[in-house]
Structures are given as structure tokens and as C-alpha cells.
């Protein structure tokens, strides 16, 4: 089946892509560029880097800009998926949804309306197991945004390695945070994975911290 992947550049959409590609042809990646940093639906930090990641995988990227208003952003997403259906002849969509019933149901509705299959290969997956599986599969992932106490500025730009996973596991027990960031606690960026023919190399970045949340803003990056 030819599939399109809703792609944010973060670990979940990238791992969902990896799993889907084991069984199906990936025709395109779809990225929503939301201007609303509080979006319920879409990842925002460093979203422009999906172009480099798509290039690293040799998969076409379709993007659409959205204001990110709660109801209109779904219409914008539908427009993007319709474009993928018409231009790339896809038969289904893949998402990296794990827990969010709100996100999953909205995308299921859109796919159902458009006569497309919808695949969520990470659905209900144990979050620490997912982080460990990413490591074991060869994903190099950094934290690109932090949005919940007690995660602090020190997590920005950090690689999710074994030490980081252990720390997130402790915070999950103590503060009930989702270690994979499914509750919006963190956003991530994939720098390397088995699907990348080249690595994403960060040459200039800054940490933006407002006292309780922040992003690791990548100013310059290239493929090496």
C-alpha cells in the first residue's frame, strides 16, 4: 500500500514511519507548519527541519501552513491529506499517535471522510519501552522543547540516551509526567535513524527559556 506519514520530525512520527516502511511503500511525508505554539494537534519547535530530514530519507515532503486555531487547523490538515491523496496517490495515512484520543480520533475522521486507511503503529505502546526501542534501533533523538515541571532548561538539546531515559523514568514515578512527552511535556527532534542516508548536523542553536518552559531553537543545520 502507498502511504503518507504525518511527519513532525520528532521521535514518534519518525518511528511510526520506520515501522510502516517495513511493510509498505512510503510515498510522502506530510508536515503541518503551525503558527500557534499552543496547538493541540501539531508539534511546533524546529518544524522547518522536516525538509532536511525528508531529504536525508529521499522521501518527498508536502507541507501546509496553518494558523493553528483549534477548529480550522483540522480543515488545513484535511487539505494537506487530500493533496497527498491526489498528488502522491496514497491509500492511507500513518501517524505517531500513542495516547491522545483527541488527536487520533480527529485524524481517523479525516481519513474516513477521504476513504483512506489510517495506521497508528505506536498506539498504546508503553512509553519507556518505546524510548528504549528507539535507542536499540539506532535513533539519535534530542529534546527540542520542554513544557512541564519539573523538566528544566538543562533538558533542552539533550540527547535521549540511557541516562536521560533513566531520569525520565524517575520523573514519571515521582511527578506522573509522560516520559515520551505524550502529554505535551517534551518535544523531540530526530538527528539520526536507520532511514536517514545522512545525519542532521546542528551548527548553530540557542536555548530559549521563559522560566517554566522553553525550546531548543536550531538556527542552522545541515546534512552530513
Amino acid at each position: 500500500m502507498r502511504l503518507g506519514v504525518l511527519f513532525s520530525g520528532g521521535k514518534d512520527s519518525c518511528f511510526a514511519l520506520y515501522k510502516a516502511k517495513e511493510q509498505h511503500e512510503i510515498a510522502c511525508l506530510l508536515t503541518m507548519r503551525s503558527r500557534n505554539k499552543e496547538s493541540y494537534m501539531f508539534h511546533t519547535p524546529n518544524i522547518d527541519l522536516t525538509a532536511l530530514q525528508a531529504e536525508a530519507m529521499g522521501i518527498p515532503l508536502l507541507t501546509v501552513e496553518t494558523e493553528g486555531e483549534k477548529e480550522t487547523e483540522l480543515g488545513d490538515l484535511k487539505t494537506l491529506i487530500m493533496k497527498a491523496k491526489n498528488e502522491c496517490n496514497i491509500h492511507g495515512i500513518v501517524t505517531g499517535a500513542i495516547e491522545s484520543v483527541y488527536q487520533a480520533a480527529r485524524i481517523q475522521e479525516i481519513c474516513n471522510d477521504l476513504g483512506l486507511w489510517c495506521f497508528n503503529p505506536l498506539w498504546k505502546k508503553d512509553q519507556l519501552s518505546l524510548l528504549n526501542e528507539l535507542r536499540e534501533t539506532g535513533f539519535k533523538v534530542i529534546i527540542s522543547g520542554v513544557f512541564a515541571y519539573p523538566l528544566d532548561k538543562s533538558f533542552l538539546g539533550r540527547e535521549i540516551d540511557d541516562t536521560c531515559i533513566a531520569e525520565l523514568a524517575v520523573l514519571q514515578k515521582k511527578f506522573n509526567i509522560s516520559p515520551s512527552g505524550e502529554g505535551g511535556e517534551i518535544e523531540t527532534l530526530v538527528l539520526e535513524c536507520p532511514l536517514f542516508k545522512r545525519k542532521l548536523h546542528i551548527t548553530n542553536s540557542e536555548k530559549k527559556w521563559d522560566g517554566s518552559s522553553g525550546i531548543f531553537n536550531i538556527l542552522e543545520a545541515s546534512l552530513i
Binding site: K19, A20, Q23, F119, P121, L122, W123, K124
Partner: peptide, 10 residues
Amino acid sequence: ERLSEEEFVK
């Protein structure tokens, strides 16, 4: 589709 089993069986 086997890929759906990740979502509905696992």
C-alpha cells in the same frame, strides 16, 4: 493489514 495489529492486537 499486519500493520494494523500494532494498534488493535498488541
